[in-house]
Amino acid sequence: MTGNFLHAPYHVFLDRHLEFCQFTSNVSHSSVFRRFDKGLNRMDIFAQLIVSGIAVGGVYALIALGFVLIYKATSVINFATGEFMMLGAYVCLTLLTYLKIPLAVVFTFTLLFAFVLGVAIERVILRPLIGEPVISVIMVTIGLSSILKGLAHIIWTADFRSFPEILPAEPWDLGFAIVPSALKWGFMFAIIGVIIFTIIFKYTRIGIAMRANASDQQVAQSMGISAKVIFALSWSFAACAAAIGGIVIGNISGIHPQLGLVGLRVLPVVILGGLDSVGGAILGGFIIGILENLAGGYINPILPGFKDVAPFIVLVFILMLRPYGLLGKRIIERV
């Protein structure tokens, strides 16, 4: 930044963040390659990368769902998704460590918290901006992310924290590949989340109302569906999805106020799948997860850190060639 006007603490942040990225990118491999340290078999590595990719992809899909829910209902991209994740993870961790209550109860409370957070933010910050230009809406979510990040930093300090081992730590041996324990549980939670949200969205009354609202707000309103309720519900569902994603990611790589950066890494997933497509978000999650891991496995040794930018390079190409994504509706106006 223009110099010091970024201030010393930021550099500390960045260092931490770099470490953090390093950590997230290594965690899925280190435990994995230990198995292959004698005579690395090419096919085995490939299978391993694909499997880890699918596991990470499940988490991405869940977070991407949050983006899609909000976008479908309100045509907003929530750049604070990452911070929703971080808050979810922190709340869950705090409840677990201080109250020592069963996991299921903690989980319910965390979701409740996320639900309320979503409604509150929609009501206080997003509602006044309905009908404002896109830049205002984008910037307000970015401002929000900054506020949440700062608050988390004040409340929980910048220390790295990790979840206590509540779930049995045993990796998943598929024969041709191993899924590390954290990744295994993460994948399971994420997939359950994805399935629940998809079912809600496809088959329940609320979900149908949400879809009706997305396809035509006026008609939906004349059928007695309140747009206000739908907006609030979309934000709170998205916050819940993000909170689950946050807990999963936090469990894999530790929790830190900068955890929210993972939220931005899901943007390529959403765009690849199509911003308004639930199926696309799931598909995109797996594709990007696998792609990222392959890039990490094969290109990182030549170009260090390439894993982290690979999705963004893909993103640029998708935007140039097929901005509506794989399964999105083709309503992009070309000017």
Binding site: H7, V140, I147, G150, L151, H153, P257
Partner: peptide, 24 residues
């Protein structure tokens, strides 16, 4: 001790949100 960086972030975000809502 480390209050400055997060407070700065909160103030920063609040300014953005405040201006967008009340003084676009």
């Amino acid at each position: 001790q480390h209050i400055f960086a997060p407070v700065r972030e909160v103030v920063f975000g609040s300014l953005i949100v405040f201006f967008l809502i009340f003084e676009p």
